[in-house]
């Protein structure tokens, strides 16, 4: 492991930290279209695009069609939107409990995102600016945790969350036992993901990219560590923070294995584990399940549309972690 510079958020796009890289795939037109195809080639390309679009959107189409068809129609001709009802969506929302699941997912994803942004800023700052013994070793230890897949640890984490943590010593305020809320709690869904080495690196990198005399100047002005982070660093690394936040939010929202393992009460489910419950207990009503997936997909669609600008950076940022 030679000095692995934490890969800048996105090889290919991140080299320049400016707006160019963080732009979403530009849907807009370019001015010079010297290579615009003509005639048959143009037609052929359109035809190909249309065919592929149809193929890609086909699962979405069938899902939406069946989600809005009444129960007596959806099996008869699942491809034709010949009738329309909101009843199934309503049923998925109420008896399918999707409303509750969405709420839970939102709380969990926001909590994880907020916490990770804070912890990443703090530890990133520490690695960037603080000098302390063993810094290098600790840094590599952090780095190493990136290599451990969630799948290798959830097994023991389940037990930790379930029974809490008994410390060999007593801490002020906390005592010697830290309960994590047990299974089915928000804490159980949140606590293991409060910090990541990935976020730490991302922020360390962003902070190191700041002009080096900035910290010095701040120190001369009598600004402490936290003051520097709040008033100087955060405004400057905002693009990276946004990318980290979006990526964290998406991965928190999309978690499947962990919630399916630690949740066994209906009301505690996230959207993903809730969809699992909905599907496994209503396999005879595919349209209800499809309605559930439509409801589950919409909020994230909205988030993605709002944060289009951060999307590419968010995705590439996350790609480092995998």
């Amino acid at each position: 492991m030679t000095d692995v510079r934490v890969p800048a958020p996105a090889p290919g796009t991140a080299a320049s930290d400016g707006d160019e890289a963080s732009k979403p795939p530009a849907w807009g037109h370019r001015t010079h279209a010297w290579d615009e195809p003509h005639g048959w080639r143009r037609f052929g390309r359109y035809a190909l695009l249309v065919v592929i679009t149809v193929a890609v959107l086909f699962p979405v189409y069938t899902t939406v069609v069946s989600a809005f068809k009444p129960s007596d129609k959806f099996l008869v001709n699942p491809l034709v939107p010949d009738s329309f009802t909101l009843d199934v969506i309503r049923e998925a929302w109420t008896s399918g409990n999707l409303g509750r699941y969405l709420f839970n997912s939102t709380v969990v994803a926001i909590a994880i995102t907020t916490a990770q942004v804070v912890t990443s800023l703090l530890s990133g700052y520490a690695f960037a600016y603080l000098r302390f013994p063993g810094r290098k070793i600790v840094f590599y230890a952090f780095l190493a945790t990136l290599l451990v897949p969630l799948e290798a640890t959830v097994f023991v984490n389940f037990q930790t969350i379930e029974s809490g943590l008994t410390l060999p010593f007593s801490l002020p305020l906390i005592g010697d036992h830290i309960p994590f809320g047990g299974l089915n709690s928000f804490q159980a869904l949140i606590v293991p993901f409060l910090a990541t080495a990935f976020g730490t690196f991302l922020m360390r990198q962003a902070l190191l990219d700041l002009p080096s005399d900035l910290r010095e100047a701040a120190r001369l002005d009598g600004i402490g560590h936290l003051g520097f982070i709040r008033h100087v660093a955060v405004p400057l690394v905002r693009p990276t923070l946004a990318a980290l936040a979006l990526f964290t939010f998406l991965s928190a929202w999309n978690q499947y294995l962990w919630p399916s393992l630690i949740i066994n009460e209906a009301d505690a489910n996230t959207v993903q584990s809730g969809l699992r419950v909905l599907s496994k207990s209503n396999l005879d009503q595919p349209n209800l399940v499809m309605a559930g997936t439509v409801i589950a997909a919409i909020p994230i669609l909205i988030v993605l549309i709002i944060f289009q600008k951060q999307l590419v950076r968010g995705l590439t940022a996350g790609a480092v972690k995998g």
């Binding site: 804070v118 912890t119 990443s120 703090l122 530890s123 700052y125 520490a126 690695f127 603080l130 600790v138 230890a141 952090f142 945790t145 451990v148 290798a152 640890t153 959830v154 097994f155 023991v156 984490n157 930790t160 943590l165 606590v191 293991p192 993901f193 409060l194 910090a195 990541t196 080495a197 730490t200 560590h225």
Partner: peptide, 23 residues
């Protein structure tokens, strides 16, 4: 400043990995 991250990573990644290796 490292404490929060180090605590979480230690408790939910390092420790469980070690324990899993033992189990």
């Amino acid at each position: 400043m490292l404490a929060p991250s180090a605590f979480i990573l230690g408790l939910f990644i390092v420790y469980p990995l070690g324990r899993a290796v033992w189990l």
